[in-house]
Amino acid sequence: MSNNYSIHSLKPGLKVIIFKEPCIIKSSFFVKPGKGQAFTRVKFKSFLSGKTVELNFKATDRLKKANIKEIDSIYLYNDNSFWYFLDNSTFEEIHVIKEIIDFKRFWLIPQCQCSLTVWKKNVISVNVNNFINLKVIQTSPVIKKNSINNSLKMAILETGVSIKVPYFIKINDYIKVDTRKCKYISRVK
């Protein structure tokens, strides 16, 4: 199997090396202008920086395949410097530095399933579930006259994240949260 992709074979989801960084292809469009040479416009997202960029490539260009591996794991615990995970297949403990975890720390509760993206034997990304159930640990009580105009209030969840929730949500309620948008979805019965 080749270590390179031709520009015509690029499709969303492929992992390639661009500017010496692993990236994932978001979209690829063939463009035939009225004048000049045809090209392919590729939108990609860097795993390391998280930035999304568009570049144009000639038909003869090739992109190197990124040797990236996904590891299914279970989140165990953290010590505020490292977050520890258990590899589901080898049962090895994997530690991830705080900078890689970043904002995703708010979606990691002990024993939750997630996947780790590994490149050159280093974890470069932690992928959490799109939806997670969390307990409300603090929220303000509803004042009757405010509930008519304001249908949302702030709540602090068990992981420390603050989000807007409907006025009827109380302390100790469990709610479903969209981790991509940091948004309340529903109350969990």
Rank of each mutant, 00 (worst) to 15 (best):
I18D: 08
I175A: 08
P12A: 07
R180E: 13
P22W: 02
R180M: 12
I7G: 05
K65V: 01
N80H: 10
F44V: 01
D102Y: 03
V165M: 08
K164G: 08
S28E: 04
V142E: 14
N150K: 14
C23S: 12
N56H: 09
L10R: 11
Y75L: 04
K183G: 02
S73Q: 05
Y167E: 12
V165I: 15
I100K: 01
N122L: 07
I25P: 00
E93G: 00
F39K: 06
I148K: 15
K32P: 00
S125M: 07
V165W: 03
R41G: 03
G36M: 11
N149C: 04
W107R: 00
K183D: 10
L14M: 10
C112Y: 08
P33L: 08
T52Y: 05
K15P: 03
K51Y: 13
I156W: 07
A59R: 13
L86A: 04
T60P: 00
F39R: 06
K98S: 14
S140D: 10
K15W: 03
L63S: 04
K135R: 13
L116S: 00
K170E: 15
N150H: 15
I148V: 13
K58E: 13
K145S: 07
S115M: 04
I124V: 14
K64I: 03
R105H: 13
C182E: 04
I185R: 14
F44P: 00
I94N: 09
L134C: 11
L86M: 15
Y5S: 04
P12R: 07
V118H: 01
S27L: 10
V42W: 02
I97R: 08
I143Y: 12
S46C: 14
V165F: 10
N88W: 02
G13A: 08
V142W: 05
D173C: 07
N88D: 06
S81G: 00
I169S: 01
W107M: 02
K120C: 06
N127F: 01
K121C: 04
L108S: 03
L134M: 15
E93N: 13
Y84C: 09
I101V: 15
